[in-house]
Write a protein that binds this DNA or RNA. Structure first.
Lengths: 121, 121
DNA sequence: TGAGCATACCTCGAACTGCAAGGTATTGCA
DNA sequence: TGCAATACCTTGCAGTTCGAGGTATGCTCA
């Protein structure tokens, strides 16, 4: 068994969630997204390009985001925005995420068997 | 090469976190842990035996928990408790988790570049 | 001029985790 | 006797993150 410090936990699905959240509000390109996530989370989340680009491609193929090529300041970039389907997906993921954080918080506090959980969809 | 799963479910590391949290407080056995997690989280987290047992074995090999065999009511069970190392590990994971939830919450709210994050360790 | 850096895109393999499905054995109850 | 619940376990698959590596262009500065 290797020491697992190499691979930080809790990152499953986080890049997709944050990317959708960003693209629902602004039109952005990949490289910009990488930096935005890093700086906005104060490097708590640091999804590299090896994560962001594959997620963007998958989301586009799914129809959750749409892209167009633009050249700005002599820089060729691929800008993405969320579609309506993407907005729906984001809303579902957000809800799931909030349910999870509530459930975990309760268990960590030891308030197990707590009666008031949000109903699981 | 599936585009993307329908839902990422954000479960990476959650079982380990909850198991350590439970075992820091109570001495429990595997089958019991499976049910405790399911009922305590109102099935928001439903880590099956195929998840819990491997995690228990890995944690024990790591020295984070300790086990002893006991027979109760004619039932042979393997009871686990957290060691001091396990408690330290739990505290680290908890902190990581709380940092992450704060960072994500801020980004979802759109309060990016928020100045007041907990310093990343 | 040309070296180096930042920008901007991309892909691949390794590593890890969660999960379903399946397997064994015992106890208790109808 | 048969069936469900208890209690343990392993295996193979699938999905994700991550780092390392690759390409190409524009800027700056010596």
């Amino acid at each position: 068994m290797k020491p697992r410090a190499a691979n930080p936990h809790f990152m499953n699905g986080i890049p997709e969630l944050l990317i959708l959240s960003l693209l629902e509000r602004n039109e952005m390109y990949g490289y910009e997204i990488v930096q935005a996530i890093r700086t906005s989370t104060n490097a708590v989340v640091a999804a590299g390009e090896g994560v962001v680009y594959p997620v963007l491609h998958a989301l586009e193929e799914e129809g959750a985001i749409r892209s167009r090529r633009r050249t700005v300041n002599g820089r060729s970039r691929i800008y993405y925005t969320a579609t309506r389907a993407g907005a729906r997906r984001l809303s579902g993921l957000s809800q799931q995420w909030m349910q999870l954080t509530q459930a975990v918080e309760c268990m960590l506090k030891g308030e197990s068997h707590g009666a008031s959980f949000p109903e699981p969809a």
